[in-house]
């Protein structure tokens, strides 16, 4: 199922691009343009998560946050260009779940959205991602193909997940490394090659050896 996210943000570039980005990651995105009724819209339409800016024309992010919290427990991430500790403290006191200051790291934003949604909706959260014949089970860190399964390391899991998320596109080596760095694994070029080779070997073991294709000079794709 698709999770719905409301974006309450006045900067047009940011909200449109966020919407494109989140749609690409299979979220259903709605943009709120009337900030005076923003809190009511959230309450009446009950999205799965809200991204809220603090500086809005004609409204204040803090009061919107407070209004929402009066009658809803929806996860709220404050996304703002204010970066003082005071703003962060205020946001958390008013019931926001996360505080990210612009310009944020997109991978971190995605990870926080993902983590909040998984925690808020555990029953619906899926620990399994499927692609063609194989499925990735995040709770056990294994990849399955029919009856056969093989255990993956954290890095291998993350690489495969990224390739599945971006299926149909070529993912560059730098992009894969960036994604791994975001999980505290500061690997270099050689280690990445080793990781990819091991991953291929393991996929070979479950009968999907040719799943990851090398695009010479560009990167990898499924």
């Amino acid at each position: 199922m698709k999770y719905s996210i409301f974006i309450i943000e006045d900067d047009i570039t940011i909200r449109n691009e966020l919407s494109t980005l989140l749609s690409a990651y299979k979220y259903q995105v709605s943009i709120i343009e009337n900030f005076e009724t923003a809190a009511e819209d959230v309450i009446s339409q009950s999205p799965h998560l809200v991204l809220l800016d603090l500086n809005l024309p004609g409204a204040d992010g803090f009061s919107i946050c407070r209004e929402i919290r009066k009658s809803s427990q929806v996860p709220i991430i404050i996304v703002t260009s204010r970066d003082s500790d005071m703003d962060e403290l205020m946001s958390l006191h008013l019931g926001a779940d996360q505080f990210i200051s612009k310009p944020y790291n997109v991978q971190i934003l995605l990870a926080k959205i993902n983590a909040l949604i998984n925690r808020a909706y555990p029953a619906e959260a899926s620990h399994i991602v499927r692609y063609e014949d194989i499925s990735l089970d995040f709770s056990r860190c294994v990849v399955l193909n029919k009856e056969k399964e093989v255990e993956l390391t954290k890095n291998e899991m993350r690489i495969l997940q990224l390739l599945i998320e971006k299926q149909g596109h070529i993912v560059s080596r730098d992009e894969i490394m960036n994604a791994l760095w975001q999980t505290d694994s500061f690997i270099d070029d050689n280690t990445l090659t080793v990781n990819i080779n091991r991953l291929r070997g393991k996929l070979n073991g479950v009968g999907s050896g040719d799943l990851i294709k090398t695009r010479r000079g560009l990167g990898y794709s499924l």
């Binding site: 900067d11 570039t13 940011i14 691009e17 966020l18 494109t20 980005l21 690409a24 260009s81 204010r82 970066d83 200051s101 612009k102 310009p103 944020y104 997109v106 560059s172 992009e175």
Partner: peptide, 19 residues
């Protein structure tokens, strides 16, 4: 603080058009 908003915007544009 003002300029961080367009920087964030540009970053998102690039995230959608990677590489």
């Amino acid at each position: 603080h003002e300029i961080k908003t367009p920087i964030a915007g540009a970053k998102l544009v690039l995230e959608n058009n990677p590489d």
